[in-house]
Simulated scan of single mutants.
Amino acid sequence: MNFNIEEAVAILSRTPQTLASLLSGLPEGWLGCNEGEGTWDADEVVGHLIEGEKTNWIPRLAFILREGESKPFPAFDRYAHLSAGSRTTERKLEEFAELRARSLERLRALVDNEEWLEKTGAHPAFGKVKARELVSAWVVHDLTHLSQIVRTMALRYKTDVGPWVQYLGILNR
């Protein structure tokens, strides 16, 4: 097992800054890239991450620690961000950074020792899950969406790179 709470926090704490560095001030052409119908662009991914901070990771962790396996924790609406009010990407990045900072404070308050991470809860679809698995999924979720954003941005220039496409693995998935 590779999980370590401090290593998890090291990634989780960097995601807002990474997104801000990558996306702040970019023209809409970059922010609006997606992989086709039904996929998300960078701006929508940031909205999704905001919803996760509000209703997924910490609320579910608190639920596991409070309720155990007595009842399933609420389902997460992965598409709620698509009906959220319109805000600029800059404002979303700021909001995400604020929410993530609060989430990490709450994580440290909830998990004051590693034993808490072995507590189990009931996922609405998966059944029995550990708090450690939830926090691990949170880290990988961040990395997945960072990868998604970079991949969709690279695809914007797929036809523009000409014959170099054969050497650019990100364009050949």
Rank of each mutant, 00 (worst) to 15 (best):
I64C: 07
E115N: 15
S83A: 13
I149F: 04
E37Q: 09
L117H: 05
R14C: 02
E67H: 14
T55W: 01
Q17P: 00
D43H: 07
L22A: 11
W30E: 03
A84H: 14
G68M: 08
L26I: 01
R102L: 08
E44H: 05
I5H: 04
E7H: 12
K71P: 03
T152L: 07
F76H: 06
W30Y: 12
W40T: 02
E6I: 07
G47Y: 11
V161P: 04
V9W: 08
L168N: 12
W30P: 00
R132P: 00
P74G: 13
S24T: 11
I5S: 03
W138M: 09
R151E: 11
Y167N: 14
V139F: 09
P163F: 11
L107D: 01
W164P: 00
L12M: 10
Y167W: 13
K128I: 13
Y157L: 08
D41C: 11
K92M: 10
V150C: 10
L117C: 08
P59T: 10
K92C: 05
A20D: 12
H141T: 03
I149N: 02
E114R: 13
G68N: 07
S86H: 11
A109V: 05
P124R: 13
E6V: 05
F76I: 07
R78T: 02
A75H: 08
K119Q: 15
K54M: 09
